[in-house]
């Protein structure tokens, strides 16, 4: 399958390795996507550059109201992190729903983003959290908004043959802010969702002052329902506002017909249900009616 398996000791070394094998070397993190993709020859690579032993990429920490998550952090670590649990619960929920325990022990949140599936659970929460990714490339490092990383199904604008993502960051939720994650799948676990949504909203003085709604897979990339979110802002966080936003989200979503995942009609309707449920839970949490990790 691969000819060479390398362990760089620094980000710079990783980039050098990629450069040394132009176009034929690729980053690997947990390998839960790449291994199968290479085996099935969907993603060619002769050399893989394993970033899981580079010092300094395993952090989950808060600085100045921003949470930073390193490229080695797995879904299991995100789900179990007390920091994420209290300041970004929606992400913990999302990562906790990926695959089964073995996959979560190995698969990384960053890998989930670079793999660029419109149904990825962890990535969906990052959209709702308005995350950014730090990209390390030949010319240096830069922060890129999450949406800018997506170019289509399975297509990330960061080419893992040339560059890598070193960490993610997003604002920690403040008082009056909360999120929630919902998914619908053909069985209860160990399965990609036929639909998922992550929402975050902030309530101040009895009014919704900010909202973000991310939905997948209803387009070629994770879909941010801007109109629906905008419709919430300035309103009291009541059932009517939530229902209206959910309806708008459903109207904007364009799931494709899928033999295995379900019809357009069904999934479009379900967008409304899931978004409504997620918003309702987020409102309850933001109003302190429910702990960030509690159930509805």
């Amino acid at each position: 399958m691969w000819d060479e398996y390398l362990f760089p000791q620094s980000v710079d070394e990783a980039l050098e390795m990629l450069e040394a094998h132009v176009g034929e070397a690729r980053i690997i993190a947990g390998g839960t996507d790449l291994t199968l993709q290479s085996q099935r020859r969907q993603v060619p690579a002769k050399v893989v550059v394993d970033i899981t032993r580079i010092p300094g990429l395993d952090h989950v920490e808060e600085r100045d109201g921003l949470i930073y998550v390193g490229a080695q952090v797995t879904h299991a670590q995100v789900a179990a992190s007390p920091l994420i649990g209290s300041l970004a619960g929606v992400l913990a929920e999302a990562c906790g729903s990926v695959g089964g325990p073995q996959i979560r022990n190995v698969g990384t949140l960053v890998g989930n983003v670079v793999n660029a599936l419109p149904a990825a659970d962890g990535a969906m929460a990052l959209f709702a959290m308005d995350a950014e990714a730090e990209v390390a490339e030949g010319t240096g490092r830069r922060w890129a908004p999450i949406a800018s990383l997506y170019a289509g199904v399975g297509r990330c604008t960061v080419d893992s043959c040339e560059a890598m993502i070193t960490q993610l960051r997003f604002p920690a939720l403040r008082d009056g802010e909360a999120g929630a994650f919902e998914r619908l799948a053909k069985r209860r676990t160990l399965i990609l969702p036929i639909l998922n949504t992550a929402v975050v909203l902030g309530i101040d003085g009895g009014k919704i002052e900010k909202a973000r709604i991310a939905i997948g897979p209803v387009a070629t990339t994770p879909f941010v329902a801007t109109e629906a979110a905008a419709a919430l802002v300035g309103r009291a966080p009541d059932g009517a506002a939530v229902a209206e936003a959910a309806k708008l989200a459903s109207e904007a979503a364009e799931p494709r017909y899928s033999l295995l995942r379900g019809s357009t009609e069904y999934r479009k309707s379900m967008v409304e249900v899931l978004v409504r449920r997620a918003l309702t839970r987020a409102v309850a949490r933001a109003c302190g009616e429910e702990g960030e990790n509690g159930n509805s």
Binding site: G100, K186, R187, R188, T189, L190, I191
Partner: peptide, 8 residues
Amino acid sequence: YYIPTVMD
């Protein structure tokens, strides 16, 4: 092809 998991 989805056989039930323990959660199902």
